[in-house]
Design a protein around this nucleic acid. Structure first.
Lengths: 177, 177
DNA sequence: AAAGTAAGTCAACATGGTTGACGTAAAAGG
DNA sequence: CCTTTTACGTCAACCATGTTGACTTACTTT
C-alpha cells in the first residue's frame, strides 16, 4: 500500500519516463529553432525559408517533388517561400537533364553563406551537447531518434547498430524506388 | 591526398554527424506531431491547443504566466486558444488562493480524456523507439536532449548522470525562485 | 495612497499552412 | 502519333497562430 509511485507501480514510472521524453522533445525543438528564427527575422525571412535552404543545401539538385515530400507541405505553400528565395538569389533552378520538366534546386554562394550562418548556432548547440554527453550517449541519442522517425524516412540516416551499413547509400542510389 | 572525406578529415565527419542530428530532430519532430495534428483537425483544434492542454495537464493549477514562459508566446496569442479551450470545457480556471489575481488552470475530465487521446500516439511512438533501442540508448538519448535544451529549463528534468537527484524536486518546490 | 503585477481585451498585421481550380510543358505509353 | 500522365507553376480564398501596441480591471506590495 505504501509507495504507490515507487517499485509497486512500474507503469507509473514508464508513463513518467515517456512524458519526460515528450517534453524534452518540445523544449529541445523550441530552443533549437529559436536562434535561427531571430537571424531570419532580421532578413525578412521565416522558418519555412530556413527549412528550404537547409534541405536544398543538403541535397544539391533536389527536385521540387522530393522537397515537398520531405517538408510535407503543399506545393502552393512551398511556392511562396521558394520563389522568394529564387528572387533574392539564395537558390537557383535549372532544368533536369534526363527529365526537362524538373526544376533542380541548388544554393547560390549567397545561399550557402546564409545556410551556414543559420545552422552555425544549431551545430554548435548540438556539438556542445554531444561533447558533454560522450560518444556512447550520442550513439543512444541517434538510435532512439532514428526509431521515432517514420520508417520510410529512416533510410536517410546511417545509424550504427541499425540496418545494414549501406542504408544511406541504398537511398541515394534508389531515389526512383 | 586520397580519401579526403575519410580518416584524413575528422572535421568532415564531425560536420556530417552534426547535420545528421539536425535532420533527425527535424524528421522526428515532424512525425511526432503529425498524428495528433490529424486528430486535432477533426475537432477544430490545432497544435497550439494541444500544447496548452498538454502543459496544463502536466502541471495542474499552473498560472497563465508560467504557461506563457513555457510556450514562449505572447499572452494575446495564448488568449485565443485558451479562451476557446475554456469555452469548450476542456480547461477550468480558478482564482489563486494566496494571490487572487492569478487564474489557475486545470483540465476538466473532458480535457483529461482529450489529452490522453492526443498523447497516446506520441507515447506509443516513443515507447516503441525506447524498447527497440534499449535502456542504455535511452539514457544517452535523455542526456543529449537535455543538453540541447536551454539551461534555464533543464532543471525541469531528472536525467540520470546530470545534476543532483533532486533537480526536478528543486524546481517544483522553488516555483517562486 | 501609490506603484507594481496578473490577467484580459481590442485591433491590426505577418507568416505559413490549407483547398480548389486551372495552365503549360515534357515524358510515357497505347 | 495521339492520348494520358507527370512535374511544376499560378491565382484566389481562407484559416491558424504568431506578432506589436494600447488600454482596462483587479489585486498585491510598498
Amino acid at each position: 500500500m505504501v509507495d504507490v509511485k515507487g517499485i509497486a507501480n512500474p507503469l507509473f514510472l514508464r508513463e513518467e519516463e515517456l512524458r519526460q521524453a515528450i517534453e524534452m522533445l518540445f523544449f529541445a525543438y523550441r530552443d533549437f529553432t529559436g536562434e535561427p528564427d531571430t537571424i531570419l527575422a532580421g532578413l525578412g525571412l521565416g522558418r519555412a525559408h530556413h527549412r528550404v535552404i537547409y534541405f536544398v543545401g543538403r541535397n544539391p539538385g533536389i527536385t521540387v517533388s522530393e522537397l515537398l515530400r520531405i517538408l510535407r507541405i503543399t506545393k502552393q505553400s512551398l511556392s511562396r517561400v521558394l520563389s522568394h528565395l529564387v528572387e533574392e538569389q539564395y537558390i537557383v533552378q535549372r532544368p533536369g537533364e534526363r527529365d526537362r520538366r524538373q526544376r533542380l534546386l541548388s544554393l547560390t554562394q549567397r545561399g550557402v553563406e546564409l545556410e551556414r550562418r543559420l545552422t552555425a548556432n544549431q551545430r554548435e548547440r548540438i556539438a556542445t551537447a554531444f561533447r558533454n554527453a560522450g560518444a556512447e550517449a550520442v550513439q543512444g541519442f541517434n538510435l532512439v531518434l532514428h526509431g521515432i522517425i517514420d520508417p520510410e524516412d529512416r533510410p536517410r540516416f546511417d545509424v550504427p547498430g541499425v540496418g545494414g551499413p549501406t542504408a544511406a547509400a541504398r537511398l541515394k542510389a534508389g531515389g526512383k524506388r
